[in-house]
Structure formats: structure tokens, C-alpha cells
Amino acid sequence: MNNKILEFSSISKKVFMALAGLFLIVFLLVHLTINLFLLLGDGGKLFTASAHFMSTNPVIKIFEVFLFGGFILHIIIGILLTLKNWASRPVGYNQSNKSKTAFFSKYMIWTGLIVFTFLAIHMMNFYFVKLGLVQPPDGVGKHEFYQMTILLFSNKVYSSIYIVLLIILGFHLNHAFKAAFQTLGLNHNKYNCTIGFLGTAYSIIVAGGFIIIPIYFMFFF
């Protein structure tokens, strides 16, 4: 393999993966905050204003490049690491492992791939519409995100799938948050408990926060 990236050591790859992951973790919080504006009942004014700001502000534009880079890096390294991991035990055990482990850590590639599928659908529904690559729904302008959101969430099937996928994202984040600190070498008796608590709280708040929105539109709108 001549590719330098593939020659990176296991720890270097993991460090890049963790850094990209932490960046995505921060991004999700920003995204959630804007989405929660949908619940204000102001006819989507603040939501639309924020969406407009996010898609036009030049500083945000620069961040957008990093964001895509972060996603791509996180996904590619994740796949590379997993392929190596699978190759490291060509013959498996007859008895499934009963060691006490961090449960979700074993399924990160699967929760990750499911989240990725969701991300692709999500991009089709919003981001590519904004870019003009995908037609918006009938009667909705390509920048009318509020209308698009209401249309999508009033569809019960879409909303239910959305909720399930966000629960899976929550599981992914729950392990990811704590693991990123360990990978970066930040493990200390003084703050391990805090990191653990923050990781759990973060994953519940993010998954829960996003889930409230379709529930609101399905039942209370």
C-alpha cells in the first residue's frame, strides 16, 4: 500500500477519528438548537432566519467545508479500522464472548452505517434541495426549509423511521463521546466520572431533543 493514509498507525487513525467525531458532536448541538426553534410556534420565523444565516454566512461556509471533511474522514477511517479489525480474527470463536464490555462499542460500525444512511436521506431532503440538485416538493420553494420540515414530519412513516434512527444515533454517541477522550489519552480519576456523565447526558439530550420535534408535529401541531 503506497497510500500514506493507509500507512498511518492504528493510534494515529483513531486520534483523527476521535477529533473528527468531537467536531461532529459540537455540530450536532448547533443543529439541534436550530431545530428546536421549530417548537416555538412562531410560524417558523426564527427557524427560517437561522437556516438562512447558516446557509449564507461566509464564516459558516468555511465551517461547512470542515464539516464535510470531518464526516468523510470519520467515515473512511471508521471503515478502514473495522476492516482491519475483522481481518485480525479470521477464525472466530464457537462460543460468543461473555466478557464484560462496553456494549455499544461492539456495534459502532453498524450504528454508524445506519446513521450514514439516514444522513444520505437527510441530505437528499434538505441540503441537495438547497443546492438545486434535487427538486423540492410541489409548491415549496428550495429555501423554504420550514415548509419542507412540516411536510416531512406530517408523514407518520417518515417520522417513525426518523425517531428510530435517532435512537440509534444516541447509542452511537453514547459510546463515541467517552471513547474519544480515552483515545486522546484523556483518562484521569478526577474527571472520568464527569466525562461518563456528560457522554450519557449528551447522547440523551441530542437524541431526545431531535425526537421531540417529529412527535410535536405528529400529535400537537
Binding site: 498507525s9 492504528s10 487513525k13 481481518a87 485480525s88 464490555t101 462496553a102 471513547a179 483515545t183
Partner: peptide
């Protein structure tokens, strides 16, 4: 670490079965 990587061991995914 370089030697470890070259011998075919997998990457740590913070599963902690090792510690257990």
C-alpha cells in the same frame, strides 16, 4: 506500536473486554 500494527493485531475500539 509500529510492530504491533504490523503483526496483524486489530485496533482498539475502547470495548474494554481486555481489562475485564
Amino acid at each position: 506500536v509500529k510492530e504491533m500494527d504490523s503483526l496483524g493485531f486489530g485496533n482498539c475500539s475502547n470495548t474494554y473486554g481486555c481489562e475485564a
